[in-house]
């Protein structure tokens, strides 16, 4: 079990967003290992791969080709070995109903993509930190709900 760094995964079909994401984590200077994926199918293949080290936190964009974020969420929630992954929906604005629905279907975090790089960094820091709290303090993962 890797203790000192946090494994992050992102699935987003937008190149710029992937870039922002990676840059943000780089600037955060938290010990993280970040992998990015460009669509849902690729992500699922990655997760199911036997040699994959499962991420602590998985960021899912909702609008992706081949398999969108919501479908991935439903699939992941069905697999027991993925239970420890904190799932963060990382998307452009959705309606209140849709946001609540992602939580109901098992997402832990919902992040509305910010339009400012600093905000992005803050958000990612917050998410990682809070998740770390849950992880280290043995808080009830089921109650882990965060909306930013």
């Amino acid at each position: 079990m890797q203790k000192n760094h946090i494994t992050i995964a992102l699935a987003d079909d937008d190149e710029d967003d992937r870039l922002f994401f990676e840059d943000a984590f780089e600037e955060l200077k938290i010990n993280t290992v970040v992998t990015t994926h460009c669509d849902g199918e690729e992500l699922m293949n990655f997760l199911h791969h036997p040699e994959t080290i499962l991420p602590n936190i998985l960021f899912l964009d909702l609008n992706m080709p081949k398999k969108n974020g919501f479908e991935c969420l439903l699939e992941i929630k069905k697999v027991e070995k993925f239970n420890d992954i904190a799932i963060a929906i990382y998307s452009t604005s959705s309606s209140e109903e849709d946001v609540e629905n992602t939580f109901v279907q098992g997402a832990n975090i919902y992040i509305k993509k910010p339009s400012d790089f600093d905000t992005l960094k803050k958000i990612l820091r917050e998410v990682v930190t809070l998740n770390w709290q849950y992880h280290t303090s043995r808080l009830n993962k089921d109650n882990f709900l965060l909306r930013m």
Partner: peptide
């Protein structure tokens, strides 16, 4: 959003 992010 992209415009705003890149500006930032």
């Amino acid at each position: 959003r992209k415009i705003q992010t890149f500006i930032s």
